[in-house]
């Protein structure tokens, strides 16, 4: 396992570089929007990756609620944290694309607003994990993540249910996309998914280590109550 991480890291770096080259050079230039359309190759895969991570968070949270398994709690925490990072990328790259195309940075459109609400739910989840010291925190966080997960399909389907400025989905939305653009989109999604997996893996190891250290500190203060307390 120790060898797998650097090997996967190198492969992911190569894949990300290839995906970047394809996004900037390989993909054809869109006729209406021009070069700015290439933001789509980072924006959409980041959104898909965030959604997958939020579903992983949901699955792990439900598993934790049923089994009270510490590993599931760590998976839930890690997937939410990395999901928030990817969702932040979505919320930042979207307005950068919208400014030259729509002429505005932001509009309180259903897709944009629901994505912001989704991001706020998971940021609240992380704040709860970070600042609550109650023994019930993992259970409360798991319950909150169920609410967050319910928002994911709402965000995805909001462009079908409501009138919105946001473009229709490129896959499964009745729209069409140039096969070369679809290829570049999927390459970027694969690259970002591998990157997200590696970041989650490394964050999982860190969280495990953190809990071991916390336990050791607790044990130390039990064995040596008169010693230096943190």
């Amino acid at each position: 396992m120790k060898r797998a991480f650097p090997i996967l890291g190198v492969l992911t770096a190569i894949l990300l570089s290839y995906a970047l080259y394809e996004a900037l050079v390989g993909a054809p230039t869109e006729q209406t929007m021009g070069e700015v359309q290439r933001i789509f190759y980072y924006h959409v895969p980041s959104a898909w990756t965030a959604f997958i991570l939020f579903f992983v968070n949901f699955g792990a949270s439900v598993y934790y609620l049923i089994k009270r398994c510490a590993a599931a709690d760590i998976v839930a925490l890690v997937s939410a944290e990395v999901g928030v990072v990817f969702c932040t990328v979505v919320l930042v790259t979207g307005p950068i694309w919208a400014r030259p195309v729509w002429g505005i940075w932001w509009t309180w459109d259903m897709r944009l607003t629901s994505t912001l609400v989704l991001w706020l739910i998971y940021v609240s989840y992380l704040f709860l994990r970070r600042f609550s010291s109650s023994g019930q925190t993992p259970i409360l966080a798991a319950a909150l993540s169920v609410l967050g997960a319910l928002c994911v399909p709402f965000v995805y389907l909001s462009i079908r249910f409501f009138r919105t400025q946001h473009p229709q989905p490129v896959i499964g939305g009745g729209g069409s996309i140039d096969p070369r653009m679809l290829h570049v989109l999927l390459i970027n999604w694969l690259a970002f998914s591998c990157f997200a997996f590696l970041v989650c893996w490394s964050r999982y190891r860190l969280e495990n280590l953190q809990r071991d250290v916390d336990q050791a500190h607790a044990l130390e203060s039990l064995l040596d109550p008169g010693g230096s307390m943190r």
Partner: peptide
């Protein structure tokens, strides 16, 4: 439509966010 500065900004900010997060892990 000249979208290049926006394209550069979007890609740069994506990597800044990821690198900043990796920095917190390190």
């Amino acid at each position: 439509m000249s979208g290049n500065p926006y394209l550069f900004a979007a890609y740069a900010v994506t990597w800044i966010i990821h690198i900043a997060y990796l920095g917190t892990i390190v």
